[in-house]
């Protein structure tokens, strides 16, 4: 009884459950970090880098069945941070993730970081159009300026995310020796 509940659960759970728990925690941390980065990155002429959508796109690109859940969570987080109740962010994240999920079947003759840069560069302007169509875009800035202002930082962020996240996922146990050791 003196041991905390978490310690008891950790000792009694199977390795597969532990791996799943670590993966869920990793995904949640990534979502929160992406949301914070989206808020913190300087608002160049009012446009922000859609980090949450980039994370949803990344998840849809990788061989995972949970990409829909991640997209919904990313969109819901963006909506909540904007005080937006029209589910605009959820719909956009789902749209972007669906596009990425179908695009992953193509063969790309370029490094993963370059795929990330291109995917994010396409996602950012579509994000601006989507916000504008839903009436969730703050007024007072020409659309073309917001296109460029969001696309350029997004390309860098996308390249960084697609290059860094696979290594971090292996470390967290999505794939590779860590995952195998837990499941054995």
């Amino acid at each position: 009884m003196s041991r905390p509940l978490t310690s008891y659960l950790w000792r009694t759970c199977s390795s597969a459950v532990k791996t799943k728990a670590v993966q869920i925690c990793f995904t949640l941390i990534c979502l929160v970090a992406a949301a914070a980065m989206q808020e913190l990155l300087p608002a160049f002429v009012g446009a922000k880098t859609p980090m949450l959508a980039v994370f949803a796109v990344y998840t849809a690109f990788r061989p995972s069945r949970n990409w829909i859940l991640v997209a919904v969570a990313a969109g819901a987080l963006e909506d909540a941070l904007n005080g937006n109740t029209s589910l605009c962010g959820v719909c956009f994240a789902l749209l972007a993730a669906t596009g990425a999920h179908f695009a992953r079947s193509f063969e790309y003759g370029m490094p993963q970081a370059a795929v990330g840069a291109v995917a994010a560069m396409i996602t950012a302007p579509v994000h601006e159009i989507w916000l504008s169509a839903w009436g969730a875009l703050p007024p007072g800035c020409p659309m073309i300026v917001r296109f460029c202002a969001s696309a350029l930082p997004s390309a860098i962020a996308g390249a960084f995310a697609f290059a860094f996240l696979p290594a971090a996922e292996v470390f967290a146990g999505f794939d590779g020796p860590q995952s195998g050791r837990r499941q054995r």
């Binding site: 922000k48 904007n82 916000l131 969730a136 703050p138």
Partner: peptide
């Protein structure tokens, strides 16, 4: 001030 403009860049909102 932690951040400006929330997640979509509304310049009239600060956190």
């Amino acid at each position: 001030i932690l951040s400006r403009g929330a997640a979509v860049g509304n310049p009239c909102v600060l956190r």
